[in-house]
Amino acid sequence: MRQETTRMNRGSLHAVLSAFRQGRAFVVTSHDAPDGDAIGSMLAMYHLLRALGKDEVLCVCADPVPRIYQWLPGADAIRPAEDSLAACDTVVVVDVADRARFDAVAQRMSPQARIVVIDHHASEAPCGHVNFIDTSYAAVGEILIELCALAGAPLSRTFAECAYVAQTTDTGGYRFSNTTPRTHRLAAQLLETGIDVAAISQRVFDVLSLPKCDLLARALARRVLSADGTVAYTELTEDDLREVGAETQDVDGIVNYMRNLAGVEAGILFRSLEPGKSKVSIRAKEPFDASAFLRHWGGGGHPAAAGATVDLPVDRLRAEVLERIACLLKETT
């Protein structure tokens, strides 16, 4: 199939709708280890496709839905990537454009399936036959709100709850630098459907599991300042998760505490995953670009929030990252 890719071009949403109209049986998926934008956008897309009269729509993800999003309408229908998806002719991929990041799902797709990518991360080689990639959006949920309007579909409360979670999590409750006037205008449309933003925010931002609380205590106790106080970093291990009874999803958000320290420009969380493999997550303040910085290790994301999983022992990865980030911050001050 011919590949159509457009960045920063709303007109390509027409190509997305055209692909939807041609499709009969759909799979909606996103990246492994899904976050709020991934889950919210998957479910918003599900509700949009159903509103467009598509009866055969499956939501599939390699990893489970995190606890804090399991209340969303339709979340209980998200399937693990276990069964064949060969009967589906259209695969809608949200919040990711790299096939390797949803490979468990991709392996079960028909080779003839048409892939439609909708993303807001910069991508060198998106995997879709139709790609809408626009980095000016704070979240894929925002793109889907505009897609809903373009399609002439009603803005339902169920769609709005899912899109709101996508948007509010990727903007940190509208506190991050990716929040724009458009972000608030689109959020206003969602609020007009009658969604309970206080209840949503409480579920998404204010609930802290006991295992996560114990992980946070360990991370804070190991906090180290470097680069003249402009970098704060900490570390968690698989033993930490096992000892406190935590899951991978409980690690989410802990790195933010490093960035939030006074005087810190970049907060870093290192994790040893298995022998010879580790992960680094960075949360940064402007003008530091975490995504560009982590490309050296094959990572990516956003300027303010990025990560990388690397085939290196955590000690070596930590040394490389801290040396490089200290040099970079020294050059920019």
Score class of each variant (00 low, 15 high):
209 S>C: 06
290 A>R: 02
157 R>E: 15
204 V>L: 07
271 R>Q: 15
105 V>W: 02
186 L>M: 05
127 C>M: 01
147 L>P: 09
21 R>Q: 11
237 T>S: 15
175 R>N: 14
38 A>S: 13
317 L>P: 10
212 K>C: 10
168 T>M: 14
44 A>I: 02
44 A>H: 03
130 V>A: 02
310 V>Y: 05
80 P>F: 12
233 Y>V: 00
168 T>S: 12
123 S>A: 15
232 A>C: 15
87 A>N: 07
53 G>C: 12
289 D>I: 01
178 N>A: 08
280 V>H: 05
115 I>G: 06
267 G>R: 02
173 G>H: 11
70 Q>W: 00
227 A>G: 09
226 S>F: 02
203 R>W: 04
72 L>V: 07
175 R>E: 14
73 P>K: 11
13 L>S: 03
19 A>D: 03
18 S>R: 07
331 E>V: 00
233 Y>L: 02
124 E>N: 06
46 Y>L: 14
189 Q>G: 04
74 G>R: 01
67 R>Y: 03
306 A>T: 01
120 H>M: 11
276 G>R: 08
211 P>M: 09
106 A>E: 10
314 V>G: 07
262 A>S: 14
96 V>Y: 00
61 C>L: 04
116 V>W: 00
43 L>A: 05
188 A>D: 11
35 D>Q: 01
53 G>L: 11
170 D>R: 05
312 L>Y: 08
24 R>A: 08
142 E>R: 07
266 A>Q: 09
270 F>H: 08
125 A>S: 13
136 S>K: 06
48 L>E: 11
315 D>V: 06
160 A>V: 09
30 S>R: 00
72 L>A: 10
323 E>Y: 02
116 V>K: 02
185 R>M: 09
124 E>I: 00
193 T>M: 10
60 V>E: 03
257 Y>M: 09
58 L>Y: 06
57 V>E: 09
270 F>K: 04
261 L>S: 11
252 D>R: 09
190 L>A: 08
180 T>Y: 01
158 T>P: 04
47 H>L: 12
297 W>G: 05
56 E>L: 04
138 A>G: 15
74 G>N: 12
326 A>C: 15
321 V>S: 05
71 W>Q: 12
216 L>E: 12
241 L>Q: 12
117 V>G: 11
23 G>Y: 03
258 M>T: 06
218 R>M: 11
132 F>C: 11
233 Y>W: 15
41 S>D: 03
176 F>Q: 13
93 V>S: 01
286 E>T: 10
237 T>L: 12
12 S>Q: 13
331 E>L: 09
113 A>Q: 05
150 L>H: 08
39 I>S: 05
178 N>L: 07
313 P>A: 09
38 A>N: 01
153 A>Q: 14
303 P>R: 10
5 T>S: 15
226 S>K: 03
234 T>K: 02
70 Q>L: 01
30 S>N: 02
306 A>Q: 00
81 A>R: 07
141 G>V: 03
85 L>M: 08
137 Y>R: 04
